[in-house]
Every structure is written in structure tokens, then in C-alpha cells.
């Protein structure tokens, strides 16, 4: 396999979540984290899941990633059931989860080392390509602790993109960043998504972030975790995080989100 094969823009995957339920043992009782979730995500679609804490959004992401298994129902990636983690579905976590014992390029190369057919030089080239994509080419040989929080998340993004997955699962990756860094990230994320077409599911608390990035925004509610409402975002891209239309739409969705959570609290 050559580098150009490796960097080829492959077709993003279609994801189907079929009637998935999942519960956990809580304090003395079972907590229904997900209740009969049905979701279809098209090839190359960017879907955002918003909802209150503990509504099961992250659980759903873990099920799609194959890090956890549903009690019932199943998850299909391109028609094949997900039975475990795989390089076709990469995950970005809220914590950067970079390995401190490796330097930046070593972190990005970690997933590539497990891909057959690439020489060390190829892997380095692939890693360089993705570090350049996230704007950190100069920091290839830096240590993780030398980077700022935003830069660490960029490396984590490069690491997730490097094995050329068809799906990118993002679990509140911007939550711990400061506002300035985050807004720059939205701009870059849109560029990167345009350059490397992936099917993306982003879990977030931030409705405006969801509207800025997503093709679709799904509202989750907790106890039990369910998808309550769905918004299609048709604003033209690239989207400006501070634009009025975006803010207005985010306002509508926030109101909808609130009505679902208060209804739930009253029930």
C-alpha cells in the first residue's frame, strides 16, 4: 500500500442504530441510559447530539464505537453489525487522551502502526499530512505536555483522522477549551471536514456549536435516554459561529431542549 492509497478520500460510512437499549446498574436500581434508540446517519453526514448531562448521548457514542455493547438492538456500520472497536470508526474524547510517553508524531502514528503494509517512513509521512491539516506540522517532535489544551485536541483530531476512518465519533471534544480556541476550532473543523469527508457524530452540550457544525441536530432527553426532536440545519457552509441566523436557530433549539427537559422534570 502506498501513501497516496492511504490518503485517498474513501467513501464515508452509513450508520444505522436499530432499536438500541442500554441500562446500567445505578445505586440500587437500574438506570435506563438508552431506550429504543433509532437513528440513521447518511454517508458523510455530520450529526450532532445535544441534551442534558446523563441523557445517554455518550453511551450511544460508545455503542457505535464498539467500546460497549447494547442490551438489545444493534448498530450497523455500512450494513455490518458493530461487534467491537475498529479503525473504520475513530473516537475523539473530551480529554485529549494523548499518550504522554510518545511525542506528537508518535501519538499520531500509533493507530497507523497497527495498519499493515506501511513502512515507518510512510507512517511518518501520513502523520505529517494530518498534523499539517490541523496546523501543527511544526510540532511533530514536541512532547505532549508542551502543547496548550487546544493544540492537544488538535493532535487528538489528527490522531483520530490518521488511520483514515470512515466515521469520526466526537464526545464533547471542545468542552474543555476556552471560547477563543473553541471558535477557531469550529472554523478549522469545517475546513477539515470539507477536505476529509467523514461521517461524523458529535456529542455536545453547546447548542450553538451543534448548529454551527451539524447537518442535523438531535435533541436527547434523559431517564430514559431518548431522541425527542430533530432539526435539519440548512444554513450555507462555511458557517460563522457569531452570525445572527445561527444564533437565532440555536435559540429555537435551546427552547425546544428546555421544554423537553422541563416536561421530563414535571413528569
Amino acid at each position: 500500500m502506498s501513501i497516496s492509497d492511504e490518503l485517498e478520500n474513501i467513501v464515508p460510512a452509513k450508520l444505522v442504530v436499530e432499536d438500541v437499549s442500554k441500562s446500567f446498574a445505578g445505586r440500587g436500581r437500574r438506570v435506563q441510559a438508552l431506550d429504543n434508540i433509532r437513528l440513521e446517519v447518511g454517508e458523510g453526514e455530520f450529526v450532532c447530539l445535544v441534551g442534558p448531562s446523563g441523557c445517554g448521548k455518550s453511551t450511544l457514542l460508545n455503542l457505535i464505537a464498539g467500546l460497549d455493547y447494547p442490551d438489545s438492538g444493534r448498530v450497523l456500520a455500512d450494513g455490518r453489525p458493530v461487534v467491537g472497536p475498529g479503525r473504520d470508526r475513530m473516537v475523539m474524547f473530551q480529554e485529549h487522551a494523548l499518550f504522554p510517553w510518545l511525542d506528537v508524531v508518535g501519538n499520531v502514528m500509533f493507530g497507523l502502526k497497527l495498519k499493515p503494509g506501511l513502512t515507518r517512513k510512510d507512517r511518518r509521512e501520513v502523520a505529517r499530512y494530518y498534523l499539517k491539516l490541523v496546523g501543527l506540522e511544526k510540532f511533530m517532535d514536541s512532547n505532549v505536555h508542551e502543547l496548550s489544551g487546544g493544540m492537544k485536541q488538535r493532535v487528538a483530531l489528527a490522531r483520530a483522522l490518521a488511520p483514515n476512518p470512515r466515521v469520526l465519533l466526537m464526545d464533547e471534544p471542545f468542552a474543555a477549551l476556552d471560547a477563543m480556541t473553541r471558535e477557531q476550532f469550529y472554523v478549522d473543523m469545517q475546513k477539515i471536514w470539507a477536505a476529509r469527508r467523514k461521517t461524523i457524530i458529535l456529542v455536545t452540550h453547546n447548542v450553538r456549536e451543534a448548529v454551527c457544525l451539524g447537518d442535523r441536530v438531535l435533541i436527547f432527553s434523559a431517564h430514559p435516554g431518548r431522541i425527542r426532536e430533530e432539526f435539519k440545519i440548512t444554513l450555507p457552509r462555511p458557517r460563522d459561529f457569531s452570525s445572527l441566523e445561527l444564533a437565532a436557530l440555536a435559540g429555537d433549539i435551546t427552547r425546544a431542549l428546555k421544554s423537553h427537559t422541563t416536561a421530563e422534570a414535571a413528569a
Binding site: A65, G66, L67, G84, P85, G86, R87, R89, M90, V91, F93, A97, F99, F110, G111, L114, K115, R159, P163
Partner: peptide, 9 residues
């Protein structure tokens, strides 16, 4: 760390 490693194969 282990979770991240698992997702990378």
C-alpha cells in the same frame, strides 16, 4: 488510554 488504544485497533 486503553479505550483510546482500543479504538485505534
Amino acid at each position: 488510554y486503553v479505550r483510546a488504544a482500543h479504538t485505534m485497533g
